[in-house]
């Protein structure tokens, strides 16, 4: 009802005015206004609120400005657990993102082969993990790698290990499992972007390369990768962004353990608001803003590096 009235207004307005350009401009703005307003109110306003909150402290029922005003920001540099969570997150980032993107690209290249049979089936198989809920896949990985889980019994029965390994209870293996889980979950997702990118590369380019005697390896590095650059930059930004905000795996797969050695930044922020360090919303907001800045800076670097137009 409201919407119909609204449209009526818009058309009535545009009929009256003389200049076509002005008419169009006005109509455009009117069309944009509701969405823009909603974005401002629901997205930007909370961000401003969160920033103000990050300068406050105390119980969320009665928050006070901190003294000095940037204390929450200063405080995190002395917070060993936060620094550890930053370290963990960057560890995942540095190891997982390159592995994932390279594997995704190779898979895309293979599945882009014109002569491949059952292409659709394979593509679906690789993409399928992305259709899975983050929580459920974390829980499945958790039960697979449990001390009495599937992986342990398989390894034990193959005679590869002598006694069950406590995968999730040991720092190094717990981190490794998070990385494996991430690669499993997100490779197919990135592959789809590469596949789309590959469709955009003219086949004649490859033919020309073939005539010039380039082998598959050279074709991949000299033709595919440079031509896919915009896609690579985009997936890179998305992966960095996603990894810095990693939450579900840390919470559900390892609960940040053992001894907080796999906790991520987002998990730590959650801990400060609803977890064991409950209702410390001021500090949690400050942490969120720092994560926001990190994502922005890393994405900017990525864009700059990727955007070398000669």
């Amino acid at each position: 009802m409201l919407l119909r009235l609204w449209l009526k207004e818009v058309f009535a307005l545009s009929k009256k005015n003389s200049s076509v350009l002005a008419k169009q401009h006005r109509a455009g703005w009117i069309y944009l206004a509701p969405a823009a307003l909603l974005i401002v109110i629901m997205s930007f306003w909370p961000m401003i609120q969160a920033f103000l909150m990050s300068l406050k402290t105390g119980s969320s029922a009665n928050m006070q400005w901190v003294e000095p005003i940037f204390y929450n920001y200063k405080r995190m540099f002395a917070d060993k657990l936060f620094i550890r969570s930053v370290g963990n997150t960057f560890l995942y980032l540095i190891i997982q993102v390159p592995i994932m993107l390279v594997v995704a690209m190779l898979l895309a290249q293979m599945l882009n082969n014109k002569d491949l049979k059952f292409k659709g089936l394979f593509r679906t198989c690789v993409f399928l993990p992305c259709a899975m809920s983050l929580v459920s896949y974390s829980l499945i990985f958790k039960s697979m790698f449990a001390t009495n889980g599937l992986i342990n019994s398989v390894l034990l029965n193959l005679g590869l290990i002598e006694q069950n390994i406590n995968f999730l209870g040991t720092t190094s293996t717990a981190r490794m499992i998070i990385i494996i889980a991430l690669v499993w979950r997100w490779t197919g997702y990135n592959m789809v972007f590469y596949l789309a990118g590959l469709q955009g590369i003219e086949y004649s380019v490859y033919e020309a390369a073939k005539i010039d005697g380039a082998n598959a390896w050279q074709t991949f590095w000299r033709i595919t990768v440079p031509l896919l650059k915009p896609t690579i930059v985009m997936t890179g930004i998305m992966s960095i962004n996603g990894t810095l905000q990693l939450f579900d795996e840390s919470v559900n797969l390892t609960s940040g353990g053992p001894a907080n050695s796999t906790i991520t930044m987002s998990h730590y922020i959650y801990q400060n608001s609803f977890g064991d360090f409950v209702a410390n919303f001021g500090y949690a907001s400050a942490l969120s803003f720092v994560v926001f800045i990190m994502v922005a800076v890393l994405s900017a670097i990525n864009l700059k590096v990727g955007d070398k137009r000669d």
């Binding site: 919407l3 609204w6 009535a12």
Partner: peptide
């Protein structure tokens, strides 16, 4: 009518 439309925007949001 312009005013009305603004009011409507407000009402919707």
């Amino acid at each position: 009518k312009k005013l009305l439309s603004l009011v409507l925007v407000g009402a919707m949001s």
